[in-house]
């Protein structure tokens, strides 16, 4: 499966969805007015990934900011990953948050409480 890589913009994050190397990365800021337009191809990509054999995926989420319309799309991404995880792939989510950023930490906790995936909360220095 071909990897997706997109550079970040002022409103959308850097993303790398790489099935071959088992890496999914979302970094930067996610505040588009139309989040579905941005995330739909990524969610479709995960849908396809679910039908292939993947043994291990590291998911790195390092967001500076995200708006509420992105929050639902992120949940959809985690839901797809949860399905893949259930089919015997080892998936771990590394949720990065900046030191002192309680909102981002709590957002990670929210997802952790909804989604059946192991989350590792990683604090990074400013």
């Amino acid at each position: 499966m071909e990897a997706i890589k997109r550079e970040g913009t002022p409103k959308t994050p850097y993303v790398r969805f790489d099935g071959e190397n088992g890496v999914i990365e979302i970094k930067g800021r996610s505040i588009p007015e139309n989040s579905i337009e941005f995330y739909k191809p990524l969610i479709d990509w995960l849908e396809n990934l679910a039908s292939t054999e993947v043994s291990e995926i590291a998911v790195n989420v390092q967001l500076e900011y995200f708006n509420t319309s992105s929050s639902k799309c992120l949940l959809d991404i985690f839901k797809k990953l949860e399905l893949i995880h259930k089919k015997n792939s080892s998936i771990e989510v590394n949720w990065f948050y900046e030191e002192d950023d309680e909102d981002m930490f709590e957002a990670g906790e929210d997802y952790q409480s909804i989604i059946g995936l192991p989350f590792k909360m990683i604090e990074i220095e400013e």
Binding site: T68, S71, K72, L75, I114
Partner: peptide
């Protein structure tokens, strides 16, 4: 916090995306 998580996990989202989460957030 409870309502936020509830809407996030179960709520129907409009095309505009927010689904009522904006004010709550």
């Amino acid at each position: 916090k409870m309502l936020y998580i509830d809407i996030l996990s179960n709520g129907e989202f409009s095309d505009k995306g927010g689904g009522g989460l904006g004010m709550l957030d």
